[in-house]
Each structure stands twice: as structure tokens, then as C-alpha cells.
Amino acid sequence: MPRHITIKDVARLAGVSPATVSLALSGDNRVSIKTRQLVKEAADKINYIPNEIGRSLRLQRTETIALIIPNTSQHVFSHPYYSQLLEGITEVLNGYGYNLLLSLNPSEQELSAAYDKVLRNRRADGVIVSSASTKDRNLLRLIESGFPLVYLGKWLHDDVLGVERDDIGGAYAATDHLIRLGRRRIAHFSGPLDHQAGNDRLEGYRKALRDHNIPFDPLLVLEKDFSQEAGYEAAAELVGREIPFDALFAGNDLMAVGAMKLFREKRINIPEDISLVGFDDIELASLIQPALTTIHQPMKEVGIIAAQKLIALLNGQPAEEKQSVVATNLIVRESCGAKKDG
């Protein structure tokens, strides 16, 4: 983990005293415009955000909450579960008279700029951050600033409130279900493995294989980007390799739908030839043919809990629990080949 950047680092780079840095960053007129600019450039260069900003924001309300969706946000408007997340967040914010500021950032560099805008320009009272890349250091900067935030995902930090889905448990349930149907060569299309959701769903898949004494075969795992196009491409790649498999656990429903399209073109029948399970339980999952067996994750509930946690934090109320885990559950439909009860 990188060393924490302090006001002394800015002072050293700018060639002034720490006291001057503090005055300059607060816009004090006792510091010349030239020196203020020099200090700002030094702070920007080393990505320094003063703790005082986080503390002062508690006293100057904007009545706005920012939702930052980093890195994979190019899919945000095409991914149905984001609408459920937004519905949950806005339902709570409307009840408290808060506005929502939405920030989408497809790259880590643009994400850094988004954090800076929120912090330095005081555009929001607090931030909800959708799960970021595990390699992204911007979130750590936000935490160290003292800015009120809630993280959507697993983030093991003492000062961070979070809400996560049980991705490991959901992936385990999906894979375990396929194994109990008699499938043994189970492929998995993962999401990006530098994101926690992709990692956790792969972990749940591997754990189910271990518990049933089925060897893990890395040739059956393809890392993709959670899009429908990626599911189609991964299925084409897997079929093209001529590696035998009798089931697929797709890391999300959109990838499952893409894979289903490729299988249909190749005259591979679902579920007779390939049992298929997705993850998310988007509306499309119940409408396609065959209807998609999937893992339901209540994204509206995630949004509600996250917004409630942040409002409580802004009001100085202690959190009942720092990290909340929202359960997922298996929804059995036609694509896996299981017989439904009744």
C-alpha cells in the first residue's frame, strides 16, 4: 500500500511551509495568487487531498449525494441492474430531500478527476462508490481525505462503510446446482478479475468444484467484461477450441444471453447439450427462450441500504454494522434442464 501523502510533502515540493500550504489550499488572501497557484499545482501533482476538506464538508451541506461508478461504466446504461440500484438510492434520498449527482468514469485517470471535483469543489455531502478495480488507488485517497462515503462491495478498511452482495455464495449456488444436475465439465465466463465481483464469482465457482471433488480446469475459464458481446465471443472461443464441456456458469446474465446466441447459431441445444446458468436475474432472463436459470441479487435493496448508511453517517449516527452483506438466491428456470417442483 502506498505511503500516505501529507501536507509536508506538498510543502516540500512547493518550497513553502506547511502552514502556507494550509492557507493556500483554503484560499486565504494572505497568500499571494502566485503562491496559491504554486501550492495547488504541487498538491495536484502528488494527488494530495487535505483532511480538512472532509471535515469542513460536514459543516457546509449541499443536500447532494454523489454516486461514482468507475472504470466499467461504459456498460452502465446497458446493464439493467444499475437502474435497480439507482431506484433504491433515489427512493431514500427523495425521502430526505437530497439530490443525486451521477458520475461515470471509464478510466482510472478520469475517475481521479471525478474524485477531485467532488472533494475540492464541494459538490456533494457524501459519496456512494460502486465497486472499483482492486488496483485503483483513488478510493484510498478518498478514504484518507475523511470524506463521508459508502462503498458498494467488499472493502476491508476500518473506516469504510460498505454494502456487498454475496457474490461468492451466489456463484457457489449456481455451480453446485449444475453439479447436482450431473454436469462435470462446467465452463465459467468471469467478469474482469481486477474487480471484486469477477474475483468473488470465480472463487465461488472454484469452491463448489472443490467441494464436489471436481478438478479445476483453467481451460474452461475465460475472463471477459460482463457484456453481451463478450459472452458471444467467449462462447465462440470455447466452442472453437473443441474442448468438451456440458455446462456454463456465466458471470452475469448479459454474458449468458450472448453465449446463448452463439450456441443457437452452432445448433447447440440448451439445456439438452449445455446447461446454462447466469447471474443477476435481470428482466430479460425470464423473457428469453429457454428462460434463463440465474442468481437473483436484489440491487434495489443494495441501493436502499447504501443510501441509508450514508444519510446516517452525515447525521452523525453510528452505523449498526459497517459491512452489510445482501443475500443472493438461485432462480431455477428452463436453461439448466432441472425439473421444477409442482
Rank of each mutant, 00 (worst) to 15 (best):
V332C: 07
N71S: 11
P298F: 06
A319V: 03
D211Q: 15
I304F: 03
H296A: 08
A66K: 03
L178M: 08
A306K: 08
A256Y: 08
Y172P: 07
V160W: 09
R122E: 13
F226D: 05
L101K: 03
T175Y: 01
L222W: 00
A132D: 08
A285E: 12
P50F: 07
Y151H: 11
V76G: 01
G198V: 05
R180D: 13
P192C: 02
I214G: 09
R206C: 07
W155Y: 13
I89P: 12
M1Y: 05
V39L: 04
I49Q: 02
R137P: 03
R30K: 15
Q317G: 05
R206N: 01
N71R: 06
V160E: 04
G316A: 11
E203D: 13
I5M: 04
L100G: 12
P80I: 06
G198E: 11
V150F: 12
I268G: 02
A114P: 01
P318V: 03
V92E: 12
R206I: 07
V326H: 05
D225H: 07
D166H: 08
A173T: 10
V325R: 15
D28I: 02
E164K: 14
G169P: 08
D280Q: 05
Q196S: 14
A24R: 05
K224G: 07
M299C: 09
D225Y: 11
E87N: 12
N269A: 13
F77R: 03
L152I: 15
D194C: 01
I49P: 00
I33M: 05
I214D: 11
I268Q: 06
A307E: 04
L248V: 15
L262W: 14
S275T: 04
K40P: 00
I33D: 15
R55C: 01
L111P: 00
L86Q: 07
L104W: 05
E144K: 09
L222K: 06
Q289T: 09
I53R: 04
Y48V: 01
K154H: 13
K207F: 02
